Computed example of a mutant assay.
Amino acid sequence: MLPPPPSALPAPSLALCSEQDVTRLVHDFYARVREEPRLGPVFAARIHDWDAHLAQLVDFWSAMLRGTRRFSGAPMPKHMAMDELDRDLFDRWLGLFRLTTAECGNPAMQRLADDVAERIADTFWRRFQMLRWPPLQVVGAARPD
């Protein structure tokens, strides 16, 4: 399914949702992640202080949904160092995220959060593939001398 055009998505704003909404989304979602048979062990192996991690994730999603500027961090390098990533893990992560946003009772927040999550998963997966697998030679392409 194609993502909605940018004009159809709500903009991040303080009016879109409350901090309580963001906190509930993050905590409910990661409670599901921790119970998921494939995702749970991946997170358990790396997250040793869940309170601190959840606080950082609330800051991230507050920035994405409310436009706050509390988040600081660089998640890409940490994720790219994880050799066990595969498309199934990203799909499971997205499925649980969409399930959680569907229960939030805020359709505008759901649309924006789902779009952001889709873009994150796509970006991370594409970067992971580029780092792990060299480009394939195009059949019929000129070979370098």
Rank of each mutant, 00 (worst) to 15 (best):
H53G: 01
W50N: 05
R38Y: 07
L96D: 09
A113S: 12
L2C: 07
V22P: 08
W50G: 08
A55S: 12
E19W: 07
G105Q: 11
V33Y: 10
P77V: 00
G95N: 09
L112Y: 02
A81E: 15
M1C: 07
L54M: 05
F29R: 10
D86R: 10
W133I: 04
A11I: 01
L2W: 04
A141H: 02
R69M: 09
Q110E: 09
R87E: 15
R119T: 06
G140M: 03
L16I: 04
E103W: 03
P5H: 11
L2Y: 10
L54C: 05
L16F: 01
C104Q: 15
F43A: 01
P135S: 13
L136V: 08
L9C: 07
D145S: 09
D51L: 08
D115V: 00
L14T: 04
D88E: 15
F43L: 00
M64A: 15
L14M: 13
H27Q: 15
A81C: 04
I47G: 07
A142N: 07
R132H: 09
D122I: 01
T68E: 15
I120E: 14
L9V: 02
R87V: 08
R132Y: 00
S62W: 04
Y30L: 03
V139T: 13
D122C: 13
M130V: 02
P144T: 02
R132S: 11
D88Y: 04
V116W: 07
R32H: 08
